[in-house]
Simulated assay, not measured.
Amino acid sequence: MTKEKTNPISGYELTLMPPRDAGGAGFFGWIRLANGDQDAGYIYLISPPVEPHLNSDATYIVTSVDPNMLLTMLHVLQHEHMLQIRFFDAEVKGNPPSVFIESSLPKPINAGERSVARRAILDEVAGLLDRRG
């Protein structure tokens, strides 16, 4: 059975622990992705990254990236709008789960839906004009 979870991202918080030595060993941190006052996901900054999963009550997504990706992740979170985090697990042996941080913009309306919407708007405008005159 396929597992899927999608959460909107409205903000983020960054937590970093400095390295234990000058060589950078022991660096650790995470980015908390928020959906309002709820957790949308956590991105751990660890090397090597571990397999993504849902938390124990399946309300948010947990994933990880190599610490070298920190600036890229922050750039995306700061400069892109209307993002979501999406978890997908086909639960097929040998095929690990995937996590996507992606646009949550509405999907384009197909031509049939567009004409129905246009007709409804025209009817509403006509009704308003009739009431005025």
Rank of each mutant, 00 (worst) to 15 (best):
N7T: 12
S10Q: 04
G11Y: 04
Y12H: 12
L14V: 13
R20Q: 14
D21E: 12
G23D: 11
A25C: 09
A25K: 13
I31Y: 06
A34L: 15
A34V: 14
N35K: 13
N35Q: 12
D37M: 09
Q38V: 13
Q38T: 14
A40V: 14
A40F: 12
A40R: 10
Y42N: 09
I43H: 07
L45G: 11
I46Y: 08
P48D: 03
P49N: 00
V50H: 09
E51L: 14
E51S: 14
E51P: 06
H53F: 05
H53L: 04
N55I: 05
T59Y: 05
Y60F: 15
T63H: 02
T63L: 00
T63Y: 01
V65N: 07
M69C: 07
L70Y: 08
L70R: 08
M73I: 08
H75A: 14
V76T: 10
V76M: 08
H79N: 15
H79R: 10
H81C: 06
M82F: 05
M82W: 09
L83K: 01
Q84L: 06
I85G: 01
I85C: 01
R86N: 00
F88V: 02
K93W: 10
K93V: 12
G94V: 14
P96C: 04
P96S: 05
P97E: 10
S98T: 06
S98M: 09
V99N: 04
V99R: 06
F100T: 01
I101W: 09
E102M: 02
E102S: 00
S103V: 07
P106T: 03
K107R: 15
G112D: 12
E113L: 01
E113K: 02
R114T: 01
R119I: 04
R119N: 03
R119T: 03
A120H: 14
D123F: 08
D123P: 04
A126F: 07
L128G: 15
L128E: 15
